[in-house]
Design a binder for these strands. Sequence first.
DNA 1: TGAACCATACCGACCGGTTGGTATGGTGTC
DNA 2: GACACCATACCAACCGGTCGGTATGGTTCA
Lengths: 201, 201
Amino acid sequence: MARAQQHESKTRLLDAAMHVIRAKGYEATTVDDICSAAGLTKGGFFHHFESKEALALAAADHFGDMAARHFAAASYHAAADPLDRLLGYVDLRTAMIAGELPDFTCLLGTMVQEVYETHPAIRAACDRHISEHAATIAKDISEAKRRYAPKARWSADSLALFTQAAIQGAFVLAKARHEPAIAAGCLAHLRRYLETLFADK
Amino acid sequence: MARAQQHESKTRLLDAAMHVIRAKGYEATTVDDICSAAGLTKGGFFHHFESKEALALAAADHFGDMAARHFAAASYHAAADPLDRLLGYVDLRTAMIAGELPDFTCLLGTMVQEVYETHPAIRAACDRHISEHAATIAKDISEAKRRYAPKARWSADSLALFTQAAIQGAFVLAKARHEPAIAAGCLAHLRRYLETLFADK
DNA sequence: TGAACCATACCGACCGGTTGGTATGGTGTC
DNA sequence: GACACCATACCAACCGGTCGGTATGGTTCA
């Protein structure tokens, strides 16, 4: 069975880490928390990861890859108009706000708030995945800008970052209020902003 | 000297907590961290606060009160036009982005991300101060809306919350990049959005 | 074919250091 | 001399990480 489960246990640990860390934060999450959530023991944990920080790095990659696949497979990419793709992205993100907070909030934003000064490697991993995600949004923004707002003074990159800031901030407020709907209200404003920027359509 | 220092030591502990928690997060911050930053020992700490969580609650109040006084005293309130006051607020927040990240980021947003599920009392305190701050912004927004966009379909409250989300998200991205300037770039987009919403001025 | 050999996966007891919190006693002030 | 304020010393629980050991299954070679 060894071969068959080789990756399964590791994946279970990563999935458990994703969920527990989003609920309790990185520092408050113990290795035993993750083990019991994954149905393993500490021995198994340290067989797969050499440290708790190594797990955090792997979990960031795991989350980033999952998200990348999820958005890459989404139907909004089919739209011919880049602005429709951009608004479709925001609509998808709005639709993803469902269930409990630890189910849909962002692991990267949660971790980086805690560890940006204390764990440089984790900070860098979070930065990389957030930036790569923003870059995919920037493509559609850039194309939409060329088509509908070529003379605008803002850059596609800065606007892509702003979309991510609005999303991350929406999660922070939703956690404070303990009310997911707040996040959706914020994304509605983000959508309105994007619409007005390309109002010449 | 006891009487004279009565409040001073407590204030030093609160100031230290504000800074250290913004740098390391709540869970990673130890009581000894705060004590040494404040120049006290544990005995002094537990004389003023009955627990670490009690300190967090007091620090949230301390931060909230400081911020409230800071914004209440700001010059943008002098503007006769509510839209000028609103944009003045955003400009002030942009100007406040200076120095090191732990110096200007938000204690409430940092803490609530970590503890929203594990420490309900801290979550509630962060929520209260964020919401009260948003309410002060909502006043100017509400007045500006009545004057310049009375028929708009968004509510003043939801827009006030969105400003706070954009600010909190800007901090998250700045931490990820380890680059305060990113936050200023986000606030520029927030300002543009507010301008377009009241474009009939 | 099967026995010897080895790698992978995992368990669970254990260790040293750390942490929040306590108990106690000293010191200056009203 | 009572009280607020604070230092020192200490504790029990906890946490990340280690280690000896077991189970399983694949590979090699007589």
